[in-house]
Amino acid sequence: MRMTRPTRIATAALAFCAASASVAVAADRHNGTWAVELVTDSGVCSARYSYTVAIRDGEVRPVSASAGARVSGRVAADGTVGITVAGSGGSGSGTGRLDGARGSGTWSASSLCAGRWTARRGTTRTAEAE
């Protein structure tokens, strides 16, 4: 059976819409507030840094950060993370993956130091009146 040109266009448009919807749903599953901790394993950096970030539609934004650091990054639909942290003392980057309510990866700040990071999704609790 041969498809007409309008049928092929409609079929392609439906396939594109379905694919776009599944990517949007996959990206949304990482949305929320995450507590992130960076631990220095080698180098001259401080031993530990803590951040709270919000993820919305794959974009990482800071909620709070140690010493006024700027945090930015992206989370892919599959949970792959790329993040950059910049502050008065320099900058660093990290990679890793989020899976469910947890995440982990590695980071480095030039040749000065390197380490690992962990993240956990924050919980939202709603108070109930009795």
Score class of each variant (00 low, 15 high):
residue 26 A to G: 02
residue 27 A to K: 09
residue 33 T to A: 13
residue 125 R to L: 14
residue 39 V to R: 14
residue 126 T to N: 10
residue 118 T to N: 10
residue 63 V to Y: 03
residue 118 T to Y: 05
residue 34 W to P: 00
residue 26 A to R: 02
residue 68 G to K: 08
residue 17 C to Y: 10
residue 116 R to K: 14
residue 37 E to Y: 02
residue 54 A to Y: 01
residue 86 A to G: 09
residue 38 L to R: 06
residue 79 G to N: 01
residue 2 R to L: 09
residue 58 G to V: 04
residue 116 R to I: 07
residue 61 R to K: 13
residue 2 R to D: 12
residue 119 A to F: 01
residue 95 T to G: 08
residue 78 D to I: 09
residue 61 R to P: 00
residue 36 V to S: 03
residue 3 M to E: 12
residue 128 E to K: 04
residue 27 A to W: 06
residue 113 C to H: 06
residue 11 T to F: 13
residue 77 A to F: 10
residue 71 V to S: 04
residue 73 G to N: 03
residue 95 T to Y: 00
residue 121 R to D: 03
residue 119 A to E: 04
residue 19 A to E: 05
residue 41 D to V: 11
residue 26 A to S: 04
residue 35 A to P: 03
residue 84 T to M: 08
residue 47 A to D: 14
residue 74 R to C: 06
residue 14 L to A: 15
residue 35 A to K: 11
residue 94 G to I: 01
residue 8 R to V: 13
residue 86 A to N: 04
residue 98 L to N: 00
residue 19 A to H: 06
residue 86 A to S: 14
residue 49 Y to F: 15
residue 50 S to G: 00
residue 7 T to G: 10
residue 40 T to E: 00
residue 70 R to E: 11
residue 107 W to F: 07
residue 69 A to K: 03
residue 78 D to E: 09
residue 55 I to S: 02
residue 103 G to F: 01
residue 56 R to P: 03
residue 78 D to T: 08
residue 8 R to S: 11
residue 78 D to V: 08
residue 42 S to D: 15
residue 16 F to Y: 14
residue 127 A to H: 08
residue 26 A to M: 02
residue 14 L to W: 10
residue 23 V to Y: 11
residue 105 G to Q: 07
residue 14 L to V: 11
residue 62 P to F: 02
residue 30 H to G: 05
residue 117 W to G: 03
residue 61 R to N: 10
residue 120 R to Q: 12
residue 23 V to I: 13
residue 116 R to G: 00
residue 2 R to Y: 12
residue 45 C to M: 08
residue 105 G to V: 03
residue 79 G to D: 07
residue 84 T to R: 15
residue 55 I to L: 03
residue 110 S to V: 08
residue 89 G to L: 11
residue 23 V to E: 09
residue 97 R to M: 11
residue 62 P to N: 01
residue 87 G to R: 00
residue 12 A to R: 02
residue 37 E to Q: 15
residue 117 W to A: 01
residue 23 V to L: 07
residue 14 L to H: 09
residue 67 A to R: 15
residue 10 A to M: 02
residue 69 A to N: 11
residue 9 I to Q: 05
residue 53 V to C: 04
residue 50 S to V: 14
residue 97 R to D: 06
residue 57 D to Q: 06
residue 88 S to V: 06
residue 16 F to L: 15
residue 92 G to D: 04
residue 96 G to H: 04
residue 46 S to Y: 11
residue 102 R to H: 12
residue 8 R to N: 10
residue 31 N to A: 12
residue 69 A to E: 14
residue 4 T to C: 07
residue 51 Y to L: 12
residue 25 V to E: 06
residue 56 R to N: 07
residue 83 I to Q: 05
residue 107 W to L: 02
residue 4 T to E: 10
residue 58 G to N: 05
residue 28 D to G: 07
residue 23 V to R: 11
residue 99 D to M: 10
residue 4 T to N: 09
residue 115 G to L: 00
residue 31 N to K: 05
residue 59 E to G: 08
residue 29 R to P: 03
residue 47 A to Q: 13
residue 44 V to R: 13
